[in-house]
Design a protein around this nucleic acid. Structure first.
Lengths: 193, 193
DNA sequence: AAAACATCGGAACGAATATTCCAAATTATT
DNA sequence: AATAATTTGGAATATTCGTTCCGATGTTTT
């Protein structure tokens, strides 16, 4: 019977997504992935088909662990506005404290690959829709609980705050510091009053 | 005496920046640049040193032609708020009508290169500061002319609208259409009331 | 313990990469 | 026309890339 896999798939994908995150798809070589993951060349091709496939799987892994962060905020006993504030605070803190954490892999993937790889564009687009929907649900929760009053449908605010989120990632890559990022969030959240 | 250059430097940089814009730095080969620019291999290395140098020059060229778009809006006989609205309408229209125009080269450069190339990060960071300052000046002009009333310093709104701008580019790369983009702008501009 | 089977390490391959180099072509001055 | 200066085309190089392949290693069942 087979010898079991000597590596943990999630740990490999996490390491791979970190490298892809730092250097992009075309910027990372197989050798870099091998040293980062500790995998042997044959194991990689055996278990992940090829570089492009590994990239897509890393992307999905990153998306899922990103989803979990949103979900952990969503599960808190807070109203929608508080959830929104908590999420933004978390993102700003993370970006400010990890200036080397190259923004967001999904944003980078959108920039580098979405026009050249349909599957990447699908992942990126799905993520956009899902996050927007979650944000919209927070907004309408806050409205329902009369914490805020809206003059536009909640969906539109979901789109707006998703845009704010994407902007934060790019601005952090462009050298913006914590005050700058929190200023942006402050103005954005004020649109709910 | 010398034979004159057979090519126009600006046209070369424009063609090069288009390819870099579409495929990124690591995604474009010298051969692709040669066919896009019409240059010969020797001319390219003779006049632009190497690929990395050409990239930086393309980036600066792109930034300058981007600056010109902002300046042409700035020169209009409008108050600051109207300039802001005009600029956003222009960006949204451009992104919606050119879905293949891969967002913004400066945003893509920030994502792909800023962590690996100091000069790229400088260009990207300078661009951020310059655009923010221009936007801030528009905001304070509108305030001075009593078109709007602010409860925060104009500078902060400059940061906020720059963030909105970056977000639009990423969202367009993530498959957002015109209505989605203009919804975002609508909410963002409402923060001035 | 031996058979059966999958993983692993590393050599090997071909294609693609960025860059260099040189001879030929072209043009403006003398 | 001859010369000087510069570009240009294409061959050539060395490196790096992604991928394949095979023998050795290790593990689970019979």
């Amino acid at each position: 019977m087979p010898k079991y896999k000597q590596f943990n798939r999630d740990k490999v994908l996490e390491a791979a997504s970190t490298v892809f995150h730092e250097k992009g798809y075309n910027g990372t070589s197989i050798d870099e992935i091998l040293t980062a993951t500790g995998l042997s060349r044959s194991s990689l091709y055996d278990s992940f088909k090829d570089k492009h496939n590994l990239y897509l799987q890393s992307l999905e892994f990153y998306k899922e662990s990103n989803d979990k962060k949103f979900q952990s905020v969503d599960e808190k006993d807070l109203n929608g506005l508080q959830k929104l504030e908590t999420m933004f605070k978390g993102v700003v803190n993370h970006l400010a404290e990890n200036p080397d954490d190259n923004g967001c892999l999904l944003v980078n993937a959108a920039a580098e690959m979405s026009k050249q790889c349909f599957k990447t564009s699908q992942v990126v687009c799905n993520n956009k829709d899902e996050v927007q929907n979650l944000l919209s649900s927070w907004i309408s929760d806050a409205e329902q609980k009369k914490v805020i009053k809206l003059d536009k449908p909640a969906k539109i605010y979901g789109q707006f705050f998703y845009n704010t989120l994407c902007g934060l990632r790019v601005m952090s890559q462009s050298g913006a510091g914590k005050t700058e990022l929190s200023n942006v969030v402050k103005v954005a959240l004020d649109s709910l009053n």
